[in-house]
Design a protein around this nucleic acid. Structure first.
Lengths: 230, 230
DNA sequence: GTCTATATGAGGATAGAC
DNA sequence: GTCTATCCTCATATAGAC
């Protein structure tokens, strides 16, 4: 104990930050890279088997070391999953923000946000999976370590809902849908895709995004209520 | 061991059945009821904490007995979760089938299927949650015990896709969306709702269903591409 | 930075008394 | 049908040598 271990939870309110590790002197970088590599390996295992079902022994084995050695890099298994999630969330929120500062019309902004969501699927597949499957469990752990999950979630929700309301206010979106409910459906639809999305399938994430945007804005119906069967 | 324990996995191909317990003689029914009650308690815990994070001791405690006593009713923790899931899936598939035999126009049938999905949210909230969160883990267990999850999943997928294709064939649904992809989006949107749906909120499940059906068929857009910003 | 060795605890499951 | 008592395994984490 007492090593390079805990890299996070220095913040309090705005939890999404980090990524630029605050490198002290002219550090060798390899330490950080090694750590990142371990986190990646762990993330894959967490995604495949679930956080709890993944043992530190398995993580170590994957890295070609013994479980005890892992504790030179991390002070606990929780710290690892913590880093998996914050890395993803930092990236996600950063992307959202950069779209929002450009402030186009709400429909275009919302489409862009959908594209961002699907766009994170590939680089952050493991993290998203962990978030989906282990959210409840992590939130149920004693302590406030994973409170930031809810914080980030709330910030993202505000971003989406604001755009939806803007769209309704200027007449581009139908006024009779509930903004919050609509947001949740969009959100869920995007993230849950990690369950079945595999790179190299018929559609890439960009294709997925456009497909979804089409249905979302224009609906499945053609307008015809006819039935000519054939 | 060697009791009333294993109640399932007698079948091979068509996995969804059971519920009518094949009561041998004129059994007291309370045995079955007791068992069902225990399954319900366990389901709630599984849903809240995750299958693995839930210990048999917790389940027993919830029931006011000791963990050893649980093994009078079930031969393993897996058997319990198994029963949680099959109970739900039996009901779900049964409901789908009864809609499909009535064969109305595809749009109406699809709407009805959406209603069914949301309709299971309340009675089967715990089971659906478990299925969402622990699917990967259960599937990763050694043995073929949970293979039926995939079997049922495939059957349900066929039902949906057939209706979507019918709708496209007779001109009611836009032909330029991918049926399988569309099905998945619908499916995911419905089930993932268990994450946040709580009975007694602003909308009941029927309201949720109508809200979603509206968006799904008619889309979010009004047609106007204008911006009057008020 | 990794190893060996091990503390420490918890979990699933069993046997047999009541 | 439940309890007591307990087995066995496997988990996270630690201490200190190399």
């Amino acid at each position: 104990m007492g090593d390079v271990n805990t890299r996070k939870n220095s913040g309090t309110a705005m939890p999404v930050r980090r990524q630029s590790t605050t490198r002290r002197t002219a550090a060798p970088a390899s330490a950080s890279e090694r750590r990142d590599h371990l986190v990646k390996l762990a993330a894959e295992l967490f995604a495949r088997k679930g956080f709890q079902a993944t043992t530190v022994r398995q993580i170590a084995e994957e890295a070609g070391i013994l479980s005890g050695s892992l504790y030179h890099h991390f002070d606990s298994k929780e710290t690892i999953v913590d880093e998996v999630l914050t890395t993803f969330l930092d990236d996600l929120v950063g992307r959202y923000r950069s779209v929002l500062v450009e402030a186009r019309d709400p429909r275009e902004t919302l489409s862009e946000m959908v594209r961002i969501g699907f766009g994170t699927l590939e680089p952050h597949r493991a993290a998203i999976t962990v978030m989906q499957n282990d959210w409840n469990y992590l939130r149920s752990l004693p302590g406030d370590r994973f409170d930031y999950l809810v914080k980030v979630e709330e910030e993202v929700e505000r971003m989406w809902i604001e755009q939806i309301k803007l769209g309704q206010a200027n007449g581009m979106l139908r006024p009779d849908v509930d903004p919050k409910l609509t947001y949740r459906m969009i959100r869920d639809t995007i993230w849950v895709t990690v369950r079945w999305f595999r790179p190299g399938g018929r559609l890439d994430t960009a294709g997925l995004a456009e497909h979804y945007i089409t249905i979302l804005f224009d609906g499945l119906a053609t307008g015809e209520r006819g039935d000519r069967r054939t």
